[in-house]
């Protein structure tokens, strides 16, 4: 096992070497535009123009496409059924038995799926091109406390190990004759002997892990340094501010556009 950075795809690319906050600002801007500007196809347009080229530059386009497809598909199906067929009233496009597909519902579903696509793909683009420790270091620069970075990074690393342990216990219980398949009751009853030892052992470990952290001066106040160094440039700093302002501008404009007719009329 080499170093496991979660979703991070190690590649040499301009996107990978951007400061995490720059990426965060850009993705926030894309998300704001896609969610706030009306239009059924707006999110898809932003995806095509804003996410796809950057993913290609970052050499993670195949990952983004397959990851987003897998995540969005169940939502798209649900939306198509729930909003397409059960939209209370509207123009009927197609009648299938007792159910009717309505135009308004279909467009609502398409836009909804697009918004989920944007939420998923911005999150994935950030995760694929940014090491988690770089991200937490960058958040630290924004004033997020050190302890939050610890919680995020340590859980990212411990979860896969915990899962391995769970599988081991599951197999052991099975070999001792515990039923883990079959009726709901059988499976529900399998739960407690499976999870309780696992949960207790991880809770018991808390004490030693806290001691180990204290020994490493984790609780010390005052300035801290970092072995990991983030690369930042003046133009990136400028870009971040511009993106932030632009995102705010879009949101304010949208609120104004929605409220103005009421107050002006």
């Amino acid at each position: 096992m080499t170093v496991n950075y979660g979703l991070y795809v190690p590649k040499q690319s301009g996107i990978h070497s951007l400061h995490p906050l720059t990426k965060l600002a850009y993705l926030g801007f894309c998300l704001a535009v896609s969610w706030v500007i009306p239009g059924t196809w707006t999110p898809y347009l932003v995806f095509l123009l804003g996410i796809v080229p950057l993913s290609a530059l970052g050499q993670v386009l195949p990952n983004i496409l397959s990851g987003a497809f897998k995540a969005v598909l169940p939502f798209a199906i649900s939306l198509f059924v729930v909003q397409g067929f059960f939209w209370p009233e509207g123009t009927v496009l197609q009648q299938i038995g007792p159910f009717s597909l309505k135009e308004e519902g279909l467009f609502f579903a398409i836009r909804g799926a697009g918004r989920i696509l944007m939420a998923v793909s911005t999150f994935l683009l950030l995760s694929y091109t940014t090491r988690p420790d770089e991200l937490t270091l960058a958040l630290g620069q924004l004033g997020v406390p050190n302890s939050i970075a610890y919680v995020i990074l340590s859980t990212l690393q411990i979860i896969p190990r915990f899962q391995t342990k769970a599988t081991t216990i599951l197999d052991a219980q099975r070999s001792r004759g515990l039923e883990t398949e079959g009726s709901l009751r059988v499976r529900a009853r399998a739960l407690l002997p499976l999870v309780l030892p696992l949960l207790l052992s991880s809770i018991v470990d808390i004490e030693e892990r806290a001691i180990a952290l204290e020994v490493r001066a984790f609780g010390r106040q005052g300035p801290k340094t970092s072995l990991l160094v983030l690369h930042d440039t003046p133009w990136q700093r400028l870009l971040r501010w511009l993106l932030l302002l632009a995102a705010l501008g879009v949101i304010v404009w949208r609120i104004y556009a929605a409220l103005a007719p009421r107050f002006l009329s």
């Binding site: 170093v3 496991n4 950075y5 090491r131 420790d133 970075a149 610890y150 990074l153 340590s154 859980t155 690393q157 411990i158 892990r209 180990a212 952290l213 020994v215 490493r216 001066a217 984790f218 010390r220 005052g222 300035p223 801290k224 340094t225 970092s226 072995l227 990991l228």
Partner: peptide, 19 residues
């Protein structure tokens, strides 16, 4: 600690906290 990804960074953790 689990808060660092490599052996080198794990060793650095205490020094980082000491500044």
């Amino acid at each position: 600690t689990g808060a660092r990804f490599t052996v080198r960074e794990e060793i650095a953790f205490g020094l980082e906290n000491l500044g």
